[in-house]
Amino acid sequence: MIKPALPANEAERLAALHRYRILDTAREQEFEDLVTIARTLCGTAMGAVTLIDQDRQWFKALQGFESEQTTRDEAFCAHAILQPGQLTVVPDARQDARFCGNPAVVGEPNIRFYAGAPLLSSDGHALGTLCVFDSAPGMLDADRASALRALSRQVGRMMEMRLLRREIDHHHREHAWYEARLAEYYQQLEQTNLELSEQTRTDPLTGLPNRRALAAAMSASIERAVEGPPAVAIVDIDHFKRVNDIHGHSEGDRVLTELADVLRAQFAGRGMAARFGGEEFVILMPGTPLHQAELQCHYLREAVRLLPIGLPLSVSIGLAAHRAGETPADTLRRADAALYQAKAQGRDRVVLAD
């Protein structure tokens, strides 16, 4: 384990931190919400908003285990603030000389993976981080790294708003300009949080809803099944691995986005199409009789065959209607079994579940 060095501008950095008067304040839901979004986006069990004081790391928000503060010498984030303009990512703390003997690595909470985005003051000082971490090794792709940095900027803006709010209170709200500025900050924050929350329900490649959004929509459709139970189809691109192997992953991504456009156009207003993972998509058709759903799946299959993408493309589809007493997962399992039958029977076909 290597103790973190002090930044060259440590005195100025501490002055900037104390100016915000945020240390030792109560937990606030707004900070917790951003940690929740960060953990969801990055797929980690733990996350925090940390501030690095003179000799301690203090948690403004913390999820995954309980603590109020740690010593600065043991803080991952004390290393992260040494590079204010960069995201610090530790794939496996046990393999990193800075952290291999750290008490938080060899003991609870057994940190292996860590990613921290510095929280910058208005004059550029790194005050702490928005960080996510887990007890298993991991990595962040470019999209999740970008989202984590965006969230850290939102934490910084909230701290600026708290400072501005105190100034407004100090002046007894005599200046309407300050109030307008505060309202503008809140509006920007709400809009950004809305966009970030939407990212947790949207597949970044295709723009379709993801598995999380599908699960919520299926549950709602089953509860509201006034016009009959929903039908669910699982769509799989035939021989998709060959596309990636022969033409490359960029061409594979193009095929996925083209299919997503077909699904979006065909089921807009009459259901929901979501990316289930890899080359699999799920179509949710609320209140749709099975024979009508089957016909729509055949239309989809023909539309895919006619796509002008320069590659032969077909899909196999497993279709199931929700049964009373089934969970959404049960219905999906029956549709998946039907999909495997479609593949076994030669692909490029629609098979109804038993």
Rank of each mutant, 00 (worst) to 15 (best):
V262M: 01
L130F: 02
G287N: 04
V132E: 06
R162T: 13
T331H: 08
C100I: 10
L127M: 08
A220T: 08
D96S: 07
A293E: 09
D96A: 08
V255F: 00
Q29A: 15
A233Y: 02
T40Y: 02
D123E: 15
V155R: 01
L130I: 03
L151I: 06
W58D: 07
L140N: 13
A268N: 10
S146Q: 15
D169G: 08
L194N: 12
L34V: 15
Q57R: 08
A80W: 07
L51A: 11
L290I: 11
D55P: 11
L208I: 03
Q199R: 15
R165P: 03
P84F: 03
M159I: 13
A176I: 13
G269K: 10
D336I: 02
A216M: 08
P204Q: 05
D53F: 02
L163I: 00
D330C: 04
R56T: 06
V155D: 06
V282R: 04
A338L: 00
P230I: 04
D261G: 14
V105Q: 11
V35Q: 01
A11F: 09
R349P: 10
L214G: 03
S221L: 05
I222P: 00
P312S: 11
I237P: 03
Q154K: 06
L339A: 03
A97C: 05
H18P: 12
G138Q: 04
H247F: 00
E32P: 11
L6Q: 10
F76I: 01
S135E: 13
E294K: 08
Q83V: 00
A225Q: 13
E68G: 15
G116F: 09
R334T: 04
Q345W: 03
G116L: 03
M139I: 14
T25P: 02
V255R: 01
L119I: 15
A78V: 05
A321C: 13
G116H: 12
N102H: 12
T25N: 01
R212D: 09
L120A: 13
V262A: 09
E160V: 06
E74R: 07
F276Q: 08
E68R: 09
A176P: 09
T331D: 04
M285E: 08
G138R: 07
Q345R: 13
H171R: 12
Q296L: 15
S146R: 15
T71C: 10
M285N: 01
D348F: 03
L140I: 12
G64E: 10
A268P: 10
A231V: 10
A342Q: 05
